[in-house]
């Protein structure tokens, strides 16, 4: 069971939340045009720590940001 802690409502099971992807643009891409393209169409699938937005659907209905290790589901 993955638990997330909503800063407003507290610790809840992941069922209460909705995942909001944050397209993370690699810093190596410096051309603004290419960055736009990457942001729009490329999706990273990070192995390890990932900065993510989560929406507390069943609670306060607000967004928050966490860093989650995708290999262990641990919230860092």
């Amino acid at each position: 069971m993955l638990y997330l802690t909503c800063p407003n409502c507290g610790r809840r099971t992941v069922e209460e939340f909705r995942y909001g992807e944050i397209p993370t643009i690699p810093e190596s891409i410096t051309d603004p045009d290419a960055r736009d393209l990457d942001r729009g169409f490329m999706r990273t699938n990070p192995f390890g720590p990932s900065v993510e937005r989560w929406f507390h659907d069943y609670g306060c209905r607000r967004w928050f940001t966490v860093t989650r290790d995708t290999t262990t589901d641990e919230v860092l």
């Binding site: 409502c9 507290g10 610790r11 809840r12 099971t13 209460e16 069943y58």
Partner: peptide, 18 residues
Amino acid sequence: CAFEIHAGLNQGMVAGLP
């Protein structure tokens, strides 16, 4: 519900509903 209730306001999933 699967979360711990405390005094005051608690918001979350109860019986599958917000």
